[in-house]
Every structure is written in structure tokens, then in C-alpha cells.
């Protein structure tokens, strides 16, 4: 399964990391991929660190275990960098994508163990500007698609628009903001110069 991409999400309960993993699965499904989107379950409540996963592949996925050597790691909350070993098992040729507004240097110092690519995206700012609220998972979704290239920008945006139309059928006014958040994050996510 050489075309298999494995992604691990780190967030805090209530921030939408699980939802983001499900949305990514949704988007990938829409363009004809085989997908898995699943959270790691425990009795965690709001605020506790949580993990969610994605497998995306051109072939049927049979494995049913957690992901230990992800291609990509998405960190929805940078305070997790000191609380959780977010780069554990992360492939060197992969990348970690972090929602943060703190300086690059500081971030890198927290990721000393990892010598692969680090991408940063100020999802909070993007979300607040596009949606008027802090929903970091939407911009982070755009960022991970951009960085991983699991689908083209066009395919992704098309699929997400459909998905938002369905999800927000009762409040269509938020679709525009969500789409904007995706587009902005895809443009703004930046590699961290070492």
C-alpha cells in the first residue's frame, strides 16, 4: 500500500480534532479514496489531550489499529507540544503541521527530537478573521491537505463546499466563512526554516 497516507491529529477535547479527522475522511471519500477516520477513545472530557487518526489510500484499507508511524501529524493546539510527545513515530520524510502564533524559534526548540519538516499555520487568527470565532480545525484541515498533497486544492475545496452545504444546511451563512478559512490556511501554511 505504497499510496497509503497516515495522519495523526493531536488536539484537546472540544477543539474539533476528531471532527477534523472525520471531515478529512469525508473529503477524501468524495474524490474516490478509501478512507478511515477514527478517534482514540477514552473517558476524556473537555480540555484533555485527544488523538484522532486518518488513513487515506487508493486501495481498500484492511488494517484496524492505531497509527504509530504517521506520515503527517497535525497539532491543533500548540500547548500540547510540551504535554504530549507529538512527533513520536513521525516519519522523517513526513511533516508536522502546528497551529501556532508563537515564534518559529520557540516552536523548533520544543521539537528538537524531530528533524523532519515543520509547518506552521496560525489557525486561530485565520478562523477568527474568517468565521469570527476560534474554530481551528477548519484551517488546520486546509493546511494538512496543502502540505500532504493527498488531493488537489481544487478537488478538496469542491468536496468541502459540498460537505459544508450538507453539514450547515440549516445555517448557510457560515459556509462562506468556512470556505474562506480553508482557502486562507492553504495559502498561509508555511514551512518552518531551520
Amino acid at each position: 500500500m505504497s499510496n497509503l497516507v497516515e495522519i495523526r491529529w493531536h488536539g484537546r477535547g472540544g477543539q474539533g480534532a476528531k471532527t477534523a479527522s472525520l471531515l478529512l475522511a469525508d473529503a477524501a471519500f468524495t474524490i474516490g479514496k478509501f478512507v478511515q477516520g477514527f478517534p482514540e477513545y477514552g473517558p476524556e472530557r473537555m480540555g484533555a489531550p485527544i488523538t484522532a487518526y486518518n488513513r487515506i489510500s487508493g486501495e481498500k484499507i484492511r488494517v484496524h489499529s492505531n497509527i504509530y508511524e504517521p506520515d503527517y501529524v497535525v497539532v491543533v493546539d500548540d500547548t500540547l507540544l510540551s504535554a504530549v510527545d507529538v512527533t513520536k513515530g513521525l516519519k522523517k520524510e513526513g511533516a508536522i503541521i502546528i497551529n501556532t502564533s508563537i515564534p518559529q524559534k520557540e516552536i523548533l526548540s520544543k521539537l528538537k527530537k524531530y528533524d523532519g519538516n515543520v509547518f506552521l499555520c496560525d489557525a486561530r487568527k485565520i478562523s477568527e478573521e474568517s468565521l469570527g470565532k476560534n474554530f481551528p480545525n477548519t484551517p488546520m484541515l486546509g493546511a494538512v491537505v496543502k502540505v500532504s498533497g493527498i488531493m488537489s486544492e481544487e478537488e478538496f475545496l469542491g468536496s468541502m463546499e459540498e460537505s459544508f452545504k450538507h453539514k450547515f444546511a440549516s445555517k448557510p451563512e457560515v459556509i462562506k466563512g468556512n470556505m474562506k478559512a480553508l482557502k486562507v490556511s492553504m495559502g498561509e501554511v508555511k514551512i518552518c526554516e531551520k
Partner: peptide, 12 residues
Amino acid sequence: QDGFITSHAVEN
């Protein structure tokens, strides 16, 4: 079916 592993995993 297995709890969480398949019950909560979104798949095709």
C-alpha cells in the same frame, strides 16, 4: 463488531 475500532471509525 468491535467497539470503537469499527463502531466509531468512518470507513467506506
